[in-house]
């Protein structure tokens, strides 16, 4: 039951690349010098994205947390605490694509079990938290993503794929496998959270017409 935070394989070193440095400069400019520790979460995210960019696996190794601690003048332990608290930070290597399936009640009622099953079938992953044998996919169970009107949700890395079912999930995964990213958003005929097939109310242009 206990945690799995002790990551097995760690790189020996971590250095922010120039793209990350540019981002860091922007982040740090938002905080006074003596409060720069506030930038810990953006920096963790920058480090995670850099890992994704460079190695194909977006995670934060311990050395990166140490680098961040040093950069922000805070104890390394405080960075470990933050990174391990938030599920959005991956403290162990993941696949190239991070499939995050929401299984909280609204999504579950709308068939998130089918999405999970489809993910398993398409990637060969058995359980949440596992990475597929080809190293392309990691499937994680996440709590409410806040898009319940478009349930169920499959979040791939930073993008929401909404109104999912087994078939659409398989399709998204197939696209990803082919190296293409499908357009995120609703997978059915609707604009964001608007009703399927277009508007159902407020059809006329002015309220005077309705009277």
């Amino acid at each position: 039951m206990s945690t799995a935070w002790t990551p097995a394989e760690q790189p020996d070193s971590f250095v922010f690349d120039s793209a990350s440095e540019a981002e860091i400069a922007g982040v740090l400019s938002k905080y006074p010098e003596e409060r720069k520790a506030s930038a810990v979460m953006p920096l963790l995210y920058i480090a995670q994205r850099q890992m994704g960019r460079v190695t194909g696996s977006a995670w934060v190794p311990v050395v990166a947390m140490d680098v961040i601690a040093q950069r922000l003048g805070m104890a390394a332990m405080r960075v470990y605490e933050v990174a391990s608290f938030y599920t959005m930070f991956n403290t162990r290597p993941i696949g190239r694509y991070h499939l995050q399936v929401c299984t909280t009640t609204p999504c579950w009622l709308r068939g998130s079990d089918d999405v999970v099953e489809a993910c398993q079938k398409a990637t060969g992953i058995q359980h949440f938290g596992e990475t597929s044998a080809d190293g392309l996919f990691t499937m994680t169970e996440v709590e409410c993503l806040g898009a319940c009107a478009n349930a169920p949700i499959l979040q791939v890395d930073d993008d929401f794929y909404e109104d999912m079912n087994a078939e659409r999930t398989a399709k998204v995964i197939a696209e990803l496998r082919a190296g293409r990213r499908p357009t995120p958003g609703p997978m059915i005929d609707r604009n964001v959270s608007a009703p399927e097939g277009g508007r159902k109310t407020l059809l006329s242009s002015s309220t005077a017409d309705q009277e």
Binding site: W5, A75, A76, M77, R78, E81, S84, F85
Partner: peptide, 17 residues
């Protein structure tokens, strides 16, 4: 500052990480 509370909820534990 070598000890901390890492992770969260049921998985929270005191550790040096």
């Amino acid at each position: 500052p070598e000890l901390g509370l890492v992770s969260r909820g049921e998985n929270a534990e005191i550790t040096t990480y």
